[in-house]
Design a protein around this nucleic acid. Structure first.
Length: 453
DNA sequence: GTTTAGGGTTCG
């Protein structure tokens, strides 16, 4: 032993099966610390070194205390594993933590003269010779072009249909605890998740504006992009105190094995115990590609939902706003103005009251609330009085109004259990009742919009 | 004192 330790190259792992080794590697992937089905908490890392970039070697770390597990700060950080056991499983070699013998230390991957680990396990002993190995790995890492590469499972949000689980290259926008022990992640990849068919019977009372939330604070929403879907990702309960163990926010990641499904017409991601995180550098090819696609989209189509072309035919027209640019519901939600009117392309998801005979209040004028959606958000908007007269046309039979509303809601005359509301252009006015709380007191109404039919 | 985890698909 002495003052140095023997570090095994990853390519030589096969010679050490069932033995304890020391390894030094770049961490290219990690799982967020979580509860196991045994008695411990665990995190799974993937490491590479100068001798072997593929296959990446998986490292399983177990701890009685979740806070003691390695907490990676950045891509390409370095881990020194001491006395980890080499196991051969499913034709691959693994490094596995042993409670009696193993220890580890985490180092910043950037080149510097600082060789103090930023995290160590309790029994880790630093040896001066470690610095030499860390320096070598840093130099190699910073002189070798790396890329997270492409994944066979990578799917942008716009192509999510038909996939149960995907690898998602995305920016993490926000992490929060929505109720005691229930964590949610908000991610964005610059594309629009596809519109979802709704069950025919789903009415305004059943359709939430957001999943898992009564509403994000405006200060958080304000930092979200105005275009592209923000996917809500709920966190499996195995991730105890998730927010304390996942610190990557406003950075790009590849989330591997993210489960996706729809709930009440909204897309929802689920971070399962099988999910892994790959932190991506800003010059990773997949990040550059996403940002380039996004810029091209904005340049070519502005803030239209991506399934709409500028020449699309709608059931509606907006008489004084033909030349105005479209914007998104997220833009309206986060506008700093006290009042204004914007043109949007939306779907009419529901109306309240649901029956046409109640669209008018007892005193006569129309008074209803519609649930509107675009790829960025859902809102409730009033449709009433003169705006509703203009919308439907004046002096109409209730049956005609009902028929028109059904068409907007995508209710087909066929015996069909689902409906698919068509995209519709409309003007949405907004005003804030309280100037000291412009987002919290904001109301929306449809105006300056006419149905064709 | 032992176990935990250890990746994966479907359509051209």
């Amino acid at each position: 032993m002495g003052d140095s330790r023997y570090i095994v190259k990853l390519k030589d792992l096969s010679s050490f099966t069932q033995r304890k080794v020391n390894l030094l590697g770049l961490v290219v992937e990690f799982s967020v610390p979580r509860r196991t089905n045994g008695t411990d908490y665990c995190t799974v890392l993937k490491i590479i070194d100068q001798s072997q970039q593929t296959p990446e070697v998986a490292v399983n770390v177990f701890m009685k205390d979740i806070d003691g597990l390695p907490h990676l700060r950045s891509h390409k950080d370095i881990i020194l594993l001491c006395s980890f056991k080499v196991e051969f499983y499913n034709q691959k070699y693994y490094a596995v933590y042993d409670h009696k013998a193993s220890s580890f230390a985490l180092f910043d991957g950037r080149i510097s003269d600082n060789f103090t680990p930023y995290q160590v396990s309790p029994t880790f002993h630093h040896l001066p010779k470690d610095d030499v190995f860390v320096r070598r790995l840093r130099n190699w890492s910073n002189n070798t072009p790396f890329d997270a590469g492409i994944s066979d499972y990578a799917v942008p949000l716009k192509d999510i249909n038909g996939h149960d689980f995907i690898d998602l290259v995305c920016m993490v926008l926000h992490v929060c605890e929505v109720s005691s022990g229930k964590w949610v992640l908000f991610v964005w990849d610059g594309t629009d998740a596809p519109a979802v068919d709704l069950k025919k019977e789903l009415g305004a009372e059943e359709l939430p504006l957001q999943l898992e939330l009564t509403g994000l604070p405006p200060s958080v929403l304000y930092n979200f992009p105005r275009l592209g879907t923000v996917l809500t990702v709920v966190i499996d309960e195995a991730y105890v105190n998730f927010g304390n163990h996942f610190k990557i926010v406003r950075d790009w990641v590849r989330i591997r094995n993210l489960h996706c499904r729809t709930v009440l017409g909204l897309w929802k991601g689920v971070l399962t115990p099988q999910t892994k995180i790959r932190h991506l550098s800003k010059d990773d090819n997949s990040v550059i590609e996403h940002l380039r696609d996004y810029k091209e989209r904005v340049a070519q189509c502005g803030y239209l939902p991506s399934c709409i072309s500028p020449t699309s035919n709608f059931l509606t027209e907006v008489p004084n706003f033909e030349q105005a640019c479209c914007t998104t519901l997220m833009e309206i939600l986060t506008s700093p103005l006290v009042h204004g009117t914007f043109k949007c392309v939306v779907r009419f998801l529901a109306v309240l009251p649901s029956e046409a005979k109640y669209f008018r209040s007892p005193s006569g004028p129309y008074r209803m609330t519609v649930t509107l959606e675009d790829p960025t958000a859902r809102i409730h908007a009033l449709l009433q009085n003169g705006d509703a007269d203009e919308f439907f046309g004046e002096r109409l039979d209730i049956d005609v109004v009902a028929m028109k509303m059904n068409k907007l809601l995508g209710v087909s005359e066929l015996e069909n259990s689902s409906r698919n509301p068509p995209w519709t252009v409309c003007c949405i006015g907004f005003h804030s009742a309280n100037e000291t709380d412009i987002w919290g007191s904001r109301h929306f109404h449809i105006c300056n919009t006419r149905l064709f039919m």
